[in-house]
Simulated scan of single mutants.
Amino acid sequence: MPDQPPRGVALITGATAGLGAAFAARLAAERWDLTLVARDAERLSASAAELRARHGVRVSVLPADLATESGTAAVEDRLRDATEPVELLVNNAGIGLNKAFHGSTLDDELRILRLNVEAVMRLTFAVLPQMTERRSGGVINVSSVSGYGVTAPGSTYTATKAYVINFSESIAQSVRRYGVRVLALCPGFVRTEFHQRAGIPTAGSPGWIWLDAGTVAAKALADLRKGRYVSVPSVRYKIAASALRHTPHGLVRRFSEAGNRFVGRGAR
């Protein structure tokens, strides 16, 4: 309700669409004030206005391209601002490439590394000192169930998501003693703009593989509050993650080379 005090400030990257928008809507409904980060200033302003009108929370916007040095630095500065500390960071921004490494360009490969890996590391690094000092706070890093195995031959997307999983689990263990929680969110296929932007076709894919973005965001927040290090929404993707982790690599390679659609390259 509007008369309830805010729970703190949450900063969300990639906040205007898909999982980012779902996190923003969920957190605003829970009475969080928000800082929304994305490249498109116009979409940011529209999203912020809608959230303010619907939930009565404060929403600020920060247009930034996290694949650039200036964009990442701007968000780092906001996270280090002690006058309005960020209590929850959601590193959601990310991209995929619908091309094999040998057919890609160096610029595209550097962009996916900067956005999916470097920005996640740098923003987490920027926010943790204040969180550990005040002994509260949380970070959600959006990875993918595909980070558990080489599910797309020739693609570096799964490698970037493997980094996010391992990075998040490691940092979570080191900051837990300070009352700070870090979570890797590992969904599968989520109905967002991600696949369209990456040029990944989804026509003909079975309906049962898709997850709802709002449900995924709610599950991630619940798992963060429980102190879990990893959140894999839905039983079917828990099974997929377990299979990727424990199946001999030779068999995983055979399935991936055959284009196994269940854990294919479009998994978010």
Rank of each mutant, 00 (worst) to 15 (best):
M1E: 12
P2D: 12
P5L: 09
V9I: 13
T13Y: 02
T16C: 10
T16M: 08
A22D: 02
F23S: 01
F23Q: 00
A24P: 02
A25D: 14
R26A: 15
A28H: 04
A29Y: 10
D33V: 01
D33G: 09
D33R: 01
L34G: 00
R39E: 13
D40M: 12
A41G: 13
A41I: 04
A41M: 05
A41D: 15
E42H: 06
A46C: 07
S47M: 08
A48I: 10
A49Q: 13
E50R: 11
E50D: 14
L51H: 03
R52S: 11
R52P: 06
R52K: 12
V57D: 05
S60E: 14
V61F: 00
A64D: 08
T68G: 10
T68Y: 05
E69H: 10
E69I: 00
S70Y: 05
G71R: 12
T72N: 10
A74F: 05
V75Y: 01
E76M: 10
R78Q: 03
R80H: 08
R80T: 13
T83L: 06
E84D: 09
P85A: 05
V90Y: 02
A93D: 03
A93E: 03
G94H: 12
G94M: 06
G96H: 02
G96K: 00
K99G: 05
G103K: 06
E109F: 06
N116V: 09
E118A: 06
A119N: 02
V120N: 05
V120H: 07
L123N: 01
L123T: 04
F125E: 15
A126I: 07
V127G: 02
L128N: 08
Q130C: 05
R134T: 14
R134Q: 13
G137W: 08
V139K: 07
I140F: 05
S143N: 04
V145N: 06
S146G: 15
G149E: 07
T151P: 03
P153H: 10
Y157K: 09
A159S: 12
Y163E: 03
I165H: 02
N166P: 07
N166Q: 13
S174D: 14
S174M: 11
S174R: 13
V180Y: 01
L183C: 05
L185W: 01
C186T: 03
C186D: 13
R191C: 12
F194Y: 14
H195I: 00
G199N: 04
I200K: 11
P201F: 07
P201E: 07
T202N: 01
T202M: 09
G207M: 04
W208C: 11
I209H: 11
I209S: 13
W210P: 14
W210A: 14
L211D: 04
T215D: 11
A218C: 01
A220I: 02
L221G: 07
K226T: 09
R228S: 03
Y229T: 09
Y229V: 07
V230C: 09
S231R: 13
S231L: 06
P233K: 15
I239R: 09
T247R: 07
G250N: 04
G250S: 11
L251V: 06
V252N: 04
E257I: 04
E257Q: 10
R261V: 01
F262I: 06
